[in-house]
């Protein structure tokens, strides 16, 4: 267990003013069996109205609207979390978990992923968790962390064909591999101890719970990760999603920081 102070800042700058801006933000970590959120402050600016909601995966959302012209939009979130309380999320039942067994447009395998999946062999009676660990290891050996070659629309199959990408790509390929073996697997977004951006990892259904595995780092998720949201793939977990009127180019700046709290 760790006590972590976290902050997340996202700023969008538009090169000309936009209006009619609708947004949905999923940036708020929640208390679960794995983590306890002790403090949380969120600020979204500018806005004409803000409202709060919970999506169908249980993720907390802030949604709202900014009608008037603006050339800047920002999200600030900070708080304190106690992490690594339990190894798995056990609040979902097996029938509901079943929905994560099926491929989505982002994870649907092609020949690259099918070949990689086939190259892994399991011991008889291996649990989903054990199978997922082997799949993760195989993925890690066949994929390199290289930023800038993929984007948010890149599918798992496209990324594996390139052989490189970022945490989103690792996670999509991992989900695809697990689902090929009928293992329900979720996409998770959160923050990782250190400085940088948000992070993504997989949660794998085994023995009555979702066990988080981080394929980018080829490790089990312990107490260095703060969970924000889960879904079928990246699209269910976008931290900021928006539409607006205007032909503006946008520049995005993100800064996340997670440090151990001073006791």
């Amino acid at each position: 267990m760790k006590t972590l102070d976290f902050s997340y800042y996202m700023e969008l700058k538009f090169d000309e003013p936009v209006s009619g801006h609708h947004f949905t933000i999923k940036c708020m970590p929640q208390t679960t069996v794995r983590q306890r959120i002790e403090e949380l402050r969120v600020d979204v600016y500018p806005n004409r109205f803000l409202s709060y909601d919970e999506d169908s995966f249980g993720n907390k959302c802030i949604y709202g609207h900014m009608e008037d012209a603006h050339d800047h939009f920002e999200i600030r979130m900070e708080g304190r979390a106690v992490t690594g309380i339990a190894p798995a999320e056990t609040e979902t039942d097996a029938v509901h978990a079943g929905m994560f067994r099926y491929q989505t447009q982002m994870t649907r395998p092609g020949k690259e992923i099918l070949a990689l999946a086939k190259s892994v062999s399991f011991a008889q009676e291996a649990s989903n968790y054990e199978k997922a660990r082997l799949l993760m290891k195989k993925l890690h050996e066949n994929f390199s962390y290289v930023p800038g070659v993929t984007d948010v629309e890149t599918t798992a199959e496209e990324a594996l064909a390139l052989g490189k990408g970022v945490c989103q790509d690792y996670t999509h390929i991992m989900l695809s591999l697990c689902r090929i073996y009928q293992i329900p697997a979720r996409y998770a977004v959160g923050l990782l101890e250190g400085e940088g951006q948000s992070h993504a990892w997989a949660e794998v259904w085994s023995d009555g719970g979702f066990f988080p595995l981080d394929p980018t780092n080829n490790c089990v998720v312990g107490d260095a990760h703060i969970h924000i949201s889960s879904g079928r793939d990246y699209r269910d977990c976008m931290i900021n999603q928006g539409i607006f009127t205007g032909a503006a180019q946008q520049k995005r700046e993100i800064h996340a920081l997670v440090t151990q709290a001073e006791q």
């Binding site: 999506d55 169908s56 995966f57 509901h96 929905m99 269910d236």
Partner: peptide
Amino acid sequence: GYLAQCEGV
């Protein structure tokens, strides 16, 4: 026809 967004609604 199944929409996960409708879960729990």
